[in-house]
Design a protein around this nucleic acid. Structure first.
Length: 223
DNA sequence: GCATTAACCACAG
DNA sequence: CTGTGGTTAATGC
């Protein structure tokens, strides 16, 4: 049986007073997911808050015409707080894109922690505000940049925020990348091969290598 | 008009 | 799942 007080990950419990750890341990379930596994599903009833302990996850939603990927997130972070707190029906889905570990916390327990622990609540607010600002930025970019700019931006974002490296295993299919930036898989394919031909990036199978970061940043900025 | 951008379709590895 | 060619529509010199 999993116990929070034996867990060394930086997580939901990190900022809690020690005596609350026991309470938390009684109302938490830690689960592993394989790449491709659904973690929670749009439309389903939810009585818990999900905390991504390790791994990478896509948050996605059925749009009026096709799937839309909202964000790619990596541990450690909450996944789906907006949908856990404001409504007990999930407004979007979460799917593991690599093997991941998630802790589910009972929603009532979580609420208690928020009510009783200002620091705990404040830290969560800070993260949600940062995310909201990033989303505002992304949505304005998405409506004004041309496609090569959006693809370049997304590659840089994955490199900087998710993998902290110029070389990483690309976690999405081209069609998913299309769903993320709001374009067709064909356009993604053309832009990626164009970047490759111009020696801006290189693919070794699924491994992406950023060869010319300056040009990529220029394309991203110019839109 | 002509060029550019990007979507949709189809078909092939 | 990916790459590419043909076609079409919208937009901008």
């Amino acid at each position: 049986m999993f116990k929070c007080d034996q867990c060394s990950e930086r997580c939901i419990a990190s900022n809690l007073p020690r005596q609350l750890l026991d309470d938390l341990g009684k109302n938490i379930a830690q689960i592993e997911f394989k790449k491709g596994d659904n973690i929670f599903r749009e439309g389903a009833l939810s009585q818990s808050v999900a905390f991504l302990k390790c791994g990478i996850v896509k948050l996605h939603l059925h749009g009026p015409v096709k799937e839309k990927i909202l964000r790619i997130v990596k541990a450690p972070t909450y996944i789906g707080l907006p949908t856990s707190i404001s409504d007990n029906i999930n407004h979007f889905s979460a799917t593991a894109i690599i093997d991941t570990t998630v802790c589910f916390i009972d929603l009532h327990q979580f609420r208690e922690f928020i009510y009783n622990n200002g620091k705990f609540a404040y830290d969560i607010m800070v993260e949600m505000c940062e995310n909201e600002l990033l989303d505002y930025q992304r949505y304005t970019n998405q409506s004004q940049k041309q496609l090569p700019g959006m693809i370049a931006e997304t590659i840089l974002c994955l490199s900087d925020r998710i993998f902290n490296s110029n070389r990483f295993n690309f976690p999405l299919t081209q069609s998913e990348l299309g769903d993320l930036v709001g374009t067709s898989r064909e356009s993604v394919s053309r832009i990626l091969s164009d970047f490759s031909q111009n020696k801006i990036i290189a693919f070794n199978g699924k491994e992406l290598n950023i060869l010319n970061r300056d040009v990529l940043e220029e394309i991203s900025a110019k839109g």
